[in-house]
Nucleic acid binder design. Structure first.
Length: 590
DNA sequence: GCCGTTTTCGGCCCGACTGTTTTCAGTCG
């Protein structure tokens, strides 16, 4: 299976060829744009192909779409192969080095006939050590050093890090930055600020009118391992944790422009620029320039920046270069859901010990209730995994489930006695496996005592698309099954989501009033944002749950809310923003 | 190669930093 990341890589290789051999920067850029767009998709390009929507990816036109179709059919693209043969293959290995682009890579590979991608890096190292590389004009000491270090460290950063990994790193640095007296403000930029599920680079912006002093202070952050580059307005450092971070300075006058510019996304900015050109305005991180008068409008806030272009404020989560500008022009940017709208968490695992259960929670009900009160929740729903009941009779199973319910109710009563106020209501549910054939891993009569069931795929991820679609719809057809848990089953950077006809599932959920979960566990964030968007557009209700296996994890709710916002969710799209009263009818309890 | 509310032809973002240059090219975001 070809991943989006691999497609992006292929497109970039071809782009490099066009740049080197044809000097065709525009064609190269077109390929790079397509690469970026594909890479940033959260749905697989293959799914889009099957829906006939490849060309709906901004930057993917009929030509590239056709190449991708060939790729999925035959596993290769003849056109790409032909183009790549025009340069020595070793060039592509060199492109992976930071600071080495097509020009340098080709120069080396061409001059020294590096025809084997696999051995190219070690050959280049020999060339440096033997002093042969310095014979090429333009290859001074520092550039060689940079290349050598890069080859030796073999630091291949193929994967983007999880948002949840980047967040604490950035927050630590931001707290330090805000403690510098001359710093007026500090914010994250890029994919981090747009709350993308995975983050490429960590970029931070600092607002000050004392650039020199502040940059000097920035470089004294104790967590810095080494300074990679530093200038008046931009520095790049590597932290002891290994993370590379860019810090950009802005004056208060250009703060809004800089935030906007570097928050991106690239596609959003490209579209914003072409829109501005119609008004004879050109955009940069320093402000908005009137091309007729040459005057530069300085935007102190992002709100003013967008306002100057005649647009309402667009939240960073929506800035993906999709339909946000069209909506903004019509003043139809929705009021997105916020963490404070959330009134409860319906996917929580307690420490109730089934005789044989998988993935037991660690916290007792008391801790979960404490945490829920702390979060201001009106209700919580316990949804432990269905136990593995092999070899037990139905009545035996029933007794065990009854024992759990009794215990939870008893504990809840005790809690009520101890704590008098603001006690969240308790719903007793279960998270039930969807078997390969769509049967639930629990007999129907045993579900009667549950308030609700979350049904989830936990096995047989590799089934064919039609089989997965059928099993999910069959499982959801059960009257107690109101929530589809972590629908795609993806684990970020570990496992792709299952293949399924999501539009069919979404339509089923809409028709049958089933709720799709936005699982807030940072490694899941599932539904993914793009499917959320489709679900919401089709009128499906969602609920944001943490899937906590310990009370402290209930704080993950924020990750789910950010993901939902990226999927254009408003408060009304999210079932657990409802009051307990209204939620009961959604869960068919009344 | 992509794109389109002036365009289906003729555009395509642009500024900061580094290194090897004595005035600029390459890379990055």
């Amino acid at each position: 299976m070809v991943t989006n990341q691999q497609i992006a890589k292929m497109l970039r290789r071809v782009a490099a060829v066009f740049e080197i051999k044809d000097n065709d920067f525009f064609r190269a850029r077109a390929y790079e744009n397509a690469a970026n767009a594909v890479e940033n998709l959260t749905i697989s390009a293959r799914d889009l192909l099957e829906q006939g929507k490849l060309t709906e990816i901004p930057g993917v036109g009929p030509n590239i779409a056709q190449h991708l179709e060939e790729l999925f059919k035959t596993g290769k693209v003849r056109h790409f192969e032909t183009e790549e043969r025009r340069v020595p293959a070793g060039m592509f290995a060199l492109l992976g080095i930071r600071g080495v682009g097509p020009k340098i890579a080709f120069k080396i590979a061409h001059e020294f006939r590096l025809d084997d991608e696999k051995t190219a890096l070690s050959k280049v190292k020999q060339l440096i050590v033997s002093g042969k590389l310095s014979s090429l004009p333009g290859f001074g000491e520092k550039l060689q050093q940079k290349i050598q270090t890069s080859i030796e460290s073999a630091f291949v950063k193929e994967e983007r890090m999880l948002f949840s990994e980047a967040l604490p790193v950035s927050e630590g640095f931001l707290n330090y930055l805000k403690s510098i007296p001359q710093v007026i403000n500090a914010e994250p930029l890029g994919s981090l600020r747009r709350r993308v599920a995975t983050v490429g680079d960590i970029d931070l912006a600092v607002c000050t009118d004392k650039a020199k002093e502040v940059m000097a202070a920035v470089l004294k952050y104790p967590e810095i391992h080494k300074v990679i580059s530093s200038g008046e307005s931009l520095s790049r450092v590597q932290l002891k944790s290994g993370h590379e971070i860019d810090i950009k300075l802005a004056t208060p006058g250009e703060w809004g422009s800089l935030l906007q510019h570097f928050t991106g996304s690239k596609l959003h900015n490209i579209q914003l620029r072409s829109l501005s050109l119609e008004k004879h305005l050109s955009l940069s991180e320093h402000g908005i320039k009137n091309q007729k008068t040459g005057k530069i409008y300085q935007a102190e806030t992002e709100k003013n920046f967008y306002k100057h272009l005649g647009l309402p404020y667009i939240p960073p989560e929506l800035r993906e270069g999709e339909e946000e500008l069209e909506m903004a022009k019509k003043n139809q940017i929705p009021q997105l859901v916020e963490l404070t709208d959330i009134k409860g968490d319906l996917h929580l695992h307690s420490d109730f010990e089934f005789e044989t259960s998988h993935d037991l929670g660690q916290s007792p009900l008391k801790d979960i209730l404490d945490k829920a009160r702390n979060l201001g929740y009106e209700y919580i729903g316990l949804s432990d995994h269905n136990p593995k009941f092999q070899g037990l009779t139905t009545s035996h199973k029933k007794n065990i489930l009854q024992a759990r319910k009794n215990k939870l109710i008893t504990q809840y009563r005790e809690y009520e006695k101890d704590v008098k106020t603001r006690i969240p209501k308790l719903l007793i549910g279960l998270e039930i496996d969807i078997r390969k054939d769509g049967q639930l891993a629990l007999e129907e009569e045993l579900t009667n005592d549950l308030d609700y069931a979350i049904v989830s795929v936990h096995s047989s991820f590799e089934l064919k698309k039609a089989e997965n679609t059928a099993r999910i719809i069959k499982a959801l057809s059960h009257p107690k099954a109101v929530i589809l848990g972590h629908p795609t089953g993806r684990m970020l950077n570990q496992r792709e989501g299952i293949e399924a006809d999501w539009l069919a599932i979404i339509n089923f959920c809409k028709t049958n009033k089933k709720i799709m979960e936005v699982n807030a566990a940072p490694a899941r964030l599932d539904l993914p944002d793009d499917l959320i968007k489709i679900a919401v557009r089709n009128g499906v209700k969602l609920c944001i749950d943490t899937d906590s296996h310990a009370a402290a994890q209930m704080d993950f709710m924020q990750f789910g809310v950010w993901t939902a916002r990226r999927g254009w969710c408003t408060k009304k799209d999210i079932s657990n923003t409802l009051s307990y009263q209204d939620l009961q009818s959604v869960l068919n309890l009344k």
